[in-house]
Design a binder for these strands. Structure first.
Lengths: 149, 149
DNA sequence: TCGAGCTGGTTACCAATATAGACCAGGTCT
DNA sequence: AGACCTGGTCTATATTGGTAACCAGCTCGA
């Protein structure tokens, strides 16, 4: 009865079971669950920002994306969008013009995720000040509290 | 005064605005916006998993957390919870017993974020199979497509 | 005709970061 | 006494990220 997701690490993931029933068996908290791997792959700032940007702005070409996700290097941008493309979240369209034009946009699958990611971006923009305040408090308490001793 | 968050991070920040209205001024997409820093700090797999775990399971002690977020090293766990604590998202309570017992739980601020993060975890668990399928397709197309030369 | 430049992307290299795993304190149990 | 529990830190090594030069293919300027 190995009906559930096998937690057998990496090597194989035999598409052994029908995709429908394993939905619930995925567990991001399990180190060797494939969903963890997916999660880990997405959980970096560039991937998340790219998704959020594509969600907010819509399709963008490589250089636009690099501008809108400011601070990302070409290398990381390439790498991240490639991963997102591979994961079926983003579509990469090459227009064989000169100079070349490559456009990225969200696939339906990716939009569902991007939507959620965007809410995190929103949260940070709305609560960033609170976080920063907490941070100051923490740092103060730390350095300030060490007076005695 | 200078009640506002110091935006003086990098190159200019358009705004000398009061803290209230600048809520909206935070922009995670801007490389030097403080909110970007906050975002970047949170956008790693361990922090997100910890938040999600605390949200789903509730308060947990160090070792429980390490077990529930399986795969995390003690060092990364320590470091991540410390950051979350500093950011005012998580509370760390030390019970000076023997052996020591340290409990972590979400503060209200953190709960708001954790909630959103958890939805991403859910998404991954629900759509992981689609991602994995896409991935296989992509890899196949790639290696398979390179038959001729 | 030759060379510079645009776009998207890759590669090599180096510094920073993550990770595993040993180790520590300080108490309890046997 | 010695092994063991806990939360946590330190260290050595692997992995990652950024920098920046380079590539391809074409256009434009001189």
């Amino acid at each position: 009865m190995v009906t559930k997701v096998s937690l057998e690490t990496g090597p194989v993931y035999p598409g052994a079971m029908s995709a429908q029933q394993q939905d619930m068996a995925f567990d991001v908290f399990a180190a060797f669950c494939p969903s963890r791997e997916v999660f880990a792959e997405l959980a970096d700032k560039w991937s998340l920002l790219i998704l959020a940007s594509l969600y907010r702005v819509g399709e963008q070409r490589f250089s636009e994306l690099q501008r809108s996700v400011s601070g990302v290097s070409r290398k990381m941008l390439t790498q991240s969008v490639r991963t997102l493309e591979r994961d079926g979240l983003v579509r990469r369209t090459v227009h064989p013009e000169v100079p070349p034009r490559v456009v990225y946009d969200l696939l339906p699958l990716g939009r569902g995720l991007a939507e959620r990611v965007a809410t995190i971006g929103d949260w940070v923009e709305q609560n960033g000040h609170a976080v920063i305040a907490a941070r100051c408090g923490f740092d103060e308490a730390r350095s300030g509290g060490e007076t005695g001793s």
